[in-house]
Simulated scan of single mutants.
Amino acid sequence: MSRDNSKLSRRSFATAGIATLAMTAACGNGVGNSNDVKIDARVDATLNQMYSTYPGTRDLAQKAAGMLIIPLVTEAGFIFGGAYGRGALRINGVTVDFYSSVKGNAGLQIGAQQYAHVLFFMTDAALARFRRSSGWTAGADLEYVVRDEGNSLTADTNTLTAPVIAAIFGQAGLRVGATLEGSKYTRIIP
């Protein structure tokens, strides 16, 4: 096999691996083909769980210009990994749009996990940027208030002034930790 064909085969294998894992995650998260009523019901249940487990998030929700709630994200990986979930953008407690969350990654990893997450858009400008984008990507500047590594709300004055705040909770599975960095959010029609 020539050197060029070897590179092509590795690239094809890597691409196929990521696509397979992303499709597996999408099929296994229970949200895959749901319509808007089912997504909204899952969003309501997720918010109730978050508010009862982390009561301080109620205050964040009241101050937020809008919230993106992804009730269930399934993430799986074996060297290459992917994650998928669906949810709703709510403004003033009303669903205005539906979004998918997709993430791909590579590196030393093995396992699978599921979790819920909520993005709090704390300013009108942050919410407007999110809604105008054709595919908004979470970056390293995202502030976290809840990670399921501890059972407390950890918000400080720096966190509360951030334009976008994330809460990740309800983790179950065999992978350690969850981050939203690199997740891409795209508006969908359920």
Score class of each variant (00 low, 15 high):
residue 128 A to N: 05
residue 175 R to S: 13
residue 80 F to N: 09
residue 185 Y to M: 05
residue 116 A to H: 04
residue 47 L to G: 12
residue 162 A to C: 01
residue 68 L to T: 09
residue 133 S to V: 01
residue 22 A to C: 08
residue 17 G to H: 00
residue 30 G to K: 00
residue 174 L to R: 09
residue 158 N to C: 07
residue 184 K to N: 07
residue 176 V to G: 14
residue 162 A to V: 06
residue 29 N to S: 06
residue 24 T to S: 13
residue 29 N to E: 01
residue 149 E to F: 06
residue 166 A to P: 01
residue 102 V to Y: 15
residue 103 K to W: 04
residue 84 Y to M: 10
residue 109 Q to A: 15
residue 186 T to H: 01
residue 159 T to I: 05
residue 160 L to W: 02
residue 98 F to G: 12
residue 5 N to V: 05
residue 141 D to V: 13
residue 51 Y to P: 04
residue 171 Q to K: 11
residue 26 A to N: 11
residue 167 A to K: 02
residue 188 I to E: 00
residue 11 R to Y: 03
residue 91 I to F: 08
residue 10 R to H: 09
residue 120 F to M: 03
residue 10 R to Q: 10
residue 144 Y to L: 07
residue 152 S to W: 07
residue 110 I to W: 14
residue 109 Q to R: 14
residue 83 A to Q: 14
residue 116 A to S: 13
residue 173 G to D: 00
residue 49 Q to T: 13
residue 177 G to E: 14
residue 13 F to K: 12
residue 21 L to G: 03
residue 20 T to P: 04
residue 133 S to M: 01
residue 139 G to N: 02
residue 134 S to C: 03
residue 8 L to K: 14
residue 61 A to Q: 09
residue 86 R to L: 15
residue 188 I to N: 01
residue 75 E to C: 08
residue 115 Y to V: 05
residue 10 R to S: 10
residue 145 V to R: 01
residue 36 D to L: 13
residue 75 E to A: 13
residue 109 Q to M: 11
residue 61 A to D: 10
residue 65 A to N: 08
residue 109 Q to I: 13
residue 98 F to E: 01
residue 55 P to R: 07
residue 83 A to E: 12
residue 25 A to V: 05
residue 30 G to R: 02
residue 59 D to V: 08
residue 59 D to Y: 06
residue 27 C to W: 11
residue 153 L to T: 02
residue 19 A to G: 02
residue 96 V to M: 15
residue 102 V to I: 15
